[in-house]
């Protein structure tokens, strides 16, 4: 019975918090945009292109964070068969793919003026492109089988195998010679970035986190309703067959 009780409780909770989350997301995006475009100085080396960082870096963080969540959801789906974990995994891959696309596109637009090229096949960029294809593969596998459970299991296995890519992305800038700069925020000795640039970045990061959470809850709610719709149709279909037979 708890299999149904939990999604029901989730549904009620999501319906209650989503309006607040949407408002908070919009407000933090406004604050982030103000800080990123108006209130922060240009970089002494990169000039105004540094403003690309305020969308590029949070998008890349969210692309990785969403994949980590996808891996956790896939593991819980395979091990405990929790229905909410399945739903979460299914909701996460399009959102993660969107963030990955944003990170790739903005990175490319930053690379052209700074490195002189939109794209290089170096370790960071290539492993990030692989992340995008992992998300697409996950979405494709979910839909690839007539048996929904088979699709879910295959997609979960792909998501778990793809977890290997996360440390590769994270440490690619240290392990290989890449054009991409190393981390400046998540360092052992503290962030090596000026506060005037750290604040817009952190505000944007909050906005991106809230967007991820809002989009995830909204999609999970929709997927639960779709499951209910399927169950109701099935029940109706069986009732009709019973009448005829």
């Amino acid at each position: 019975m708890h299999r149904f009780a939990n999604p029901g409780r989730f549904q009620r909770l999501a319906t209650r918090v989503l309006p607040w989350l949407k408002g908070l997301t919009a407000l933090s995006f406004l604050a982030g945009l103000y800080l990123a475009l108006l209130a922060s100085p240009p970089d002494y080396q990169q000039g105004e292109t540094v403003r690309i960082m305020y969308v590029h870096v949070p998008a890349a963080w969210m692309a990785l964070f969403a994949y980590l969540l996808l891996g956790l959801a896939s593991a819980s789906s395979l091990i405990w068969r929790h229905p909410l974990a399945d739903i979460a995994a299914q909701a996460l891959s399009p959102i993660g793919a969107a963030f990955t696309l944003v990170a790739l596109a903005t990175g490319s637009l930053w690379g052209k003026p700074m490195w002189g090229t939109y794209w290089v096949w170096d370790a960071r960029l290539t492993s990030f492109l692989l992340l995008f294809f992992l998300y697409l593969g996950h979405m494709a596998l979910l839909d690839a089988f007539d048996d929904r459970n088979r699709g879910r299991r295959s997609a979960a296995v792909l998501a778990l195998v793809g977890l290997v890519n996360l440390p590769i992305i994270k440490f690619s800038v240290d392990w290989w010679n890449t054009l991409h700069q190393p981390a400046s925020i998540t360092r052992m000795d503290g962030p090596s970035i000026d506060p005037s640039m750290l604040w817009p970045l952190l505000t944007m990061a909050v906005a991106f986190h809230l967007f991820l959470l809002t989009a995830l809850l909204e999609r999970m709610r929709t997927l639960l309703m779709e499951a209910r719709l399927r169950a109701q149709r099935q029940a109706r279909f069986e009732a009709m067959q019973a009448e005829q037979g």
Binding site: T49, A105, T106, L109, E218, R221
Partner: peptide, 30 residues
């Protein structure tokens, strides 16, 4: 944008468009 308009604005534009698209898709499905 200090001569970098052709890179900075498309970066913000593509971010806005992709996030809007994913949100609209979720909204339409719901």
């Amino acid at each position: 944008m200090g001569g970098y308009a052709e890179f900075v604005w498309p970066a913000y534009g593509v971010t806005g468009l992709v996030l809007l698209a994913i949100w609209l898709d979720g909204y339409r499905r719901r």
